[in-house]
Amino acid sequence: MAKMMYRDAVRSTIFEAMERDERVVVLGEDVVGGMGTAGGPEAIGGIWSTSTGFYDAFGPDRVIDTPISESAIVGAAGGLALAGKKPIAELMFADFIGVSLDQIWNQIAKFRYMFGGKSTCPAIIRMAYGGGFNAAAQHSQSVHHFLTAMPGLKVVMPSTPEDVRGLLREALRGDDPVIFLEHKALYGVTGEVPDGDWTIPFGHARLTRAGQDLTLVATGLMVSRCEAAADALAKDGIGCDVIDLRTTSPMDEEAILDSVEVTGRLVVVDEAPQRCSLATDISALVAQKAFASLKAPIEMVTAPHSPVPFALELEQAYLPSAAKIEAAARKVLGYR
């Protein structure tokens, strides 16, 4: 068992994979940093410090510092993967996915299907997502909802250092393209990471709090906000299941349905705006498959239908908070 930060879990898991498997290649902007400068390579080691030391250990052929060219970065990851390598591309901010969307959506996600199952494209595309830094409309977004909607992609949203380790290993072990979403606010979070060679299979949610009265479902940073709300409710004797989905594609439907069958009350929390979101997706699932168990209308705590605003007060109002989750929970609990 080792205590480590979320960002170190990312770094050490990739490092270990590169040691074990020569096919693993890392590419992205500033993943080395300092290339072509007086300070020299490794002057930064990735803007999230998730590739520090890689260049010295594995050299320029496997740690590829790229120009600002997201379309080419993601496309090259696709090509590397089709040609037998295991690329891990870093997009820095999830928002920059817009520049490279064709390569993800029309290329990487679809190769295997279009080619009649004859190819694999085990590209991992990592990116930092999410709000809370007053970074405004182009550096704060959540992107999981529309990526989850794309057949062919697996979408992973670890909320703890342990899950980073297990889910990243699982991504590396598999042969499908994986979108790996790291919340910016989690990089500095510390947690225990067990030793040994283990993984976390995709599509297996984690129950982080157990209770009989209400089900809270979330991913990424929203998990800890649900836990805070659940802990506040626990003081009033209200027990919540908090379900961390871990992956949104595939998604652990059973975990959600099993819980709602017991509690009959559901609050879904999603950092993205509500329309066509993970929140509406889960609500539809429960409405369809657990209708008889429901004792109250489902509540969704999401961002409003707007871009992410800059100013402190606006962003606070925009993001789901523990207080908003608690309020939604009390509303559902108070129904009839």
Binding site: E29, D30, G33, G34, M35, G36, T37, A43, I44, I47, D65, P67, I68
Partner: peptide, 13 residues
């Protein structure tokens, strides 16, 4: 001469 932490001599072919 710089894009973030990278020198233009490296990144501009």
């Amino acid at each position: 001469h710089y894009s973030e932490h990278t020198g233009f001599e490296y990144a501009v072919g």
